[in-house]
């Protein structure tokens, strides 16, 4: 007769799907929130680097993602843009991904409206340009050659905040919100290592582990990894009830359910192995 663990080990995958769905839905419906302490993490490094920048600095913010990764990267974008605008830092937005330009516009215009910032004086959006890393090399010699107009076809020369910006060296920091390639690796490789501009960024949780090496070598000043990174930045900036912080409760409950099933699966495996069922 099969033991309870063996029966659990053979659970129909659809039951697991239902439990995961409930683990996500119930905390959202009940507005469950967990505290989100931010320790000495890459997200704090990122926050402290930006926070130490004096007002009037220029930051190139690249929106290298599309709607499929919005749940992770859009909250990061809102938190970073809020922080930059609160610090009176000029934001030049652009995108290596086609739909990133629209998503960036949505974030920058909404945050700017709430903080009273003016387009073309405090922020602008240059839009999308194809080419990835090769295009970044060109930005190193001339920004206006790559972006003769902004996203709304306003000529470079008519945008007041771009008067003193010529190439990548005009920026004090490049931030890439990256969902894949092209994204953070291209910026680190070309803007960081080739032109010496400090690079920071945020990325999807899937790609976060590969960028930890850039942090350890100092090739990145800080990083926001996935929803947790976004929640950290929201906490540090002081955004109350932000989407990422709200998302951490269902995230934690779902992780607990998954951990439970990993334990059950392993116990079932070992139990079967003990009986000689599996090699």
């Amino acid at each position: 007769m099969a033991s309870i663990f063996e029966k659990l080990g053979n659970t129909d995958r659809r039951i697991i799907f239902i439990l995961i769905a409930l683990a996500v839905i119930i905390p959202i419906i009940t507005h469950l929130t967990f505290p989100n302490p931010v320790g000495a993490e890459p997200s704090r490094d990122m926050y402290e680097y930006v926070d130490a920048m004096p007002s009037g600095c220029n930051v190139l913010l690249s929106f290298d993602y599309d709607p499929s990764t919005m749940p992770e990267l859009q909250p990061m974008a809102v938190a970073i843009v809020t922080h930059l605008m609160n610090k009176d830092i000029n934001i030049v937005g652009m995108a290596l991904w086609p739909q990133g330009a629209s998503l960036g516009q949505e974030v920058m215009s909404s945050v700017a409206d709430s903080l009273g910032k003016v387009q073309y004086e405090d922020w602008c959006n240059l839009g999308y340009k194809t080419g990835g890393g090769i295009m970044i090399v060109r930005l190193g010699s001339s920004m206006s050659a790559v972006f003769p107009t902004d996203r709304d076809n306003l000529p470079w020369e008519e945008i007041p905040m771009l008067e003193y910006i010529s190439d990548l060296s005009s920026f004090d920091l490049v931030i890439s919100l990256s969902a894949g390639d092209p994204g953070i690796p291209a910026w680190v490789m070309m803007a960081g290592d080739r032109f010496g501009v400090p690079v920071g960024g945020g990325c999807t949780a899937v790609s976060a582990p590969q960028f930890y090496t850039y942090l350890q070598t100092g090739q990145m000043v800080g990083m926001l990894g996935g929803l947790k990174g976004a929640a950290d930045y929201e906490t540090l900036v002081g955004i109350e009830g932000g989407p990422a912080v709200r998302g951490m409760a269902p995230q934690s409950v779902a992780h607990l359910v998954i951990m439970l099933f990993i334990v059950i699966g392993n116990v079932a495996y070992l139990s079967e192995k003990k009986k000689g069922g599996r090699g």
Partner: peptide, 10 residues
């Protein structure tokens, strides 16, 4: 796992 659950949360 965190990435996939984040998409589900979204």
């Amino acid at each position: 796992i965190m990435a996939r659950i984040s998409l589900l949360i979204g």
